[in-house]
C-alpha cells in the first residue's frame, strides 16, 4: 500500500512536471505589453509553487512508503524541532512575499494613478479613450471622436431595440455627444496606450480579453478605468467573465487591433456615417 501511494504521488508529480513545459494547453498568444510581463510572472510563480508542490508530494510519498515498511524499529518520540519550524516558516514567508513583490509592478502599471486621459490632456497625450459598456448580453464601445470628450448618456433615453447610440441612451442634446461613435465591435490601434473606461447598464459584467491577460468587472453605478497597451495586430475575443444572467455564456464581442492609419480610417468612416 505504501509503495502504491508513493507511485501514485510520483505519477502525479511527474504528470504535472510534464504538462508544465509540454504546453498542450497553455496561455493564449500574448498580445499586449502587460501580457508579456504577466506570462513571465506566470512562469516564476509556476516554477516556485511547482517546486513546492513536487517537493511536498514526493516527500509525502517517500515518507508514506519508507516508514510504513519498518516493522521492527520503534517510532521516535520526537515532539518537534523549533529550529526546523523557524526555518520553513521563514523560507515559505520569503518565497510567497517574494512572489508578491515580483508580480506587483505589473498590477501597478495597469491600475495605479491613471491620469484622466483625454487626448488633449498633455501628460497623457498619447492615450486613446474608449468606453466599454456591458449590457445584458452585449458589449457596446464608445469613442469620444475629435472632440475628445464623451457626451452625456441618460438612462431615460435608453432604447435597446434601436441598438447603437440609443442602446446607451446617448443624449443628443449634448454637444459633446455629437461626435461620439458607438459600435458593437472594438477597434484599437496597435502600440498605443488605451485609456479604458468600463461601465455597466444593468448588472455586473466583466471585460475579459484572454490574449491581453486583461480582465476588469464593469459595475453599474461606477466608471472603472484601466490602462491597456495592445502590441500585436489581430482579432481577439472579448468574453464576459462575471455571471450576469441567462445569456452570460454568449455575451462576447470581437476586438480588432489594427495599424494606426487603419484605425483612423475606420473611425473617420464611422464619423462620416454619423453625419
Amino acid at each position: 500500500m505504501g509503495l502504491a501511494l508513493l507511485l501514485a504521488l510520483l505519477l502525479l508529480a511527474g504528470l504535472s512536471i510534464y504538462f508544465f513545459p509540454a504546453h498542450n494547453w497553455w496561455l493564449p498568444a500574448a498580445a499586449s505589453s502587460t501580457a508579456h510581463a504577466t506570462d513571465a510572472q506566470f512562469f516564476r510563480s509556476y516554477l516556485i509553487m511547482g517546486v513546492i508542490f513536487v517537493a511536498a508530494q514526493v516527500a509525502l510519498g517517500l515518507v508514506a512508503w519508507h516508514f510504513s515498511r519498518r516493522r521492527a524499529t520503534p517510532a521516535s518520540n520526537s515532539h518537534g524541532h523549533n529550529g526546523l519550524e523557524l526555518l520553513w516558516t521563514v523560507l515559505t514567508a520569503v518565497l510567497f512575499l517574494g512572489l508578491q513583490a515580483t508580480g506587483h509592478p505589473i498590477w501597478a502599471a495597469e491600475r495605479f494613478d491613471l491620469p484622466e486621459g483625454t487626448a488633449t490632456d498633455s501628460n497623457h497625450a498619447d492615450a486613446i479613450q474608449v468606453e466599454a459598456t456591458g449590457v445584458q448580453f452585449a458589449w457596446y464601445f464608445r469613442y469620444p471622436g475629435p472632440g475628445a470628450k464623451f457626451g452625456h448618456t441618460d438612462p431615460k433615453q435608453i432604447d435597446a431595440s434601436q441598438g447603437g447610440e440609443s442602446a446607451l441612451g446617448l443624449d443628443a442634446t449634448d454637444p459633446a455627444a455629437k461626435d461620439d461613435v458607438v459600435t458593437g465591435e472594438m477597434y484599437l490601434p496597435v502600440d498605443r496606450d488605451v485609456d479604458l473606461n468600463l461601465r455597466a447598464q444593468d448588472v455586473i459584467h466583466s471585460f475579459f480579453v484572454p490574449n491581453m491577460r486583461f480582465k476588469q468587472d464593469a459595475v453599474p453605478g461606477l466608471r472603472i478605468r484601466a490602462r491597456l497597451h495592445p502590441t500585436v495586430i489581430g482579432t481577439y475575443e472579448i468574453a464576459c467573465a462575471e455571471l450576469c444572467g441567462l445569456g452570460h455564456y454568449k455575451m462576447h464581442a470581437k476586438l480588432h487591433v489594427v495599424s494606426q492609419q487603419e484605425f483612423d480610417q475606420w473611425l473617420a468612416g464611422k464619423e462620416a456615417d454619423k453625419q
Binding site: F150, H152, T153, D154, P155, G169, D171, R199, G221, L222, R223
Partner: peptide
C-alpha cells in the same frame, strides 16, 4: 457616490 453619466 455613484457615477452620474450626466454630469460625468
Amino acid at each position: 457616490g455613484q457615477w452620474d453619466p450626466h454630469s460625468s
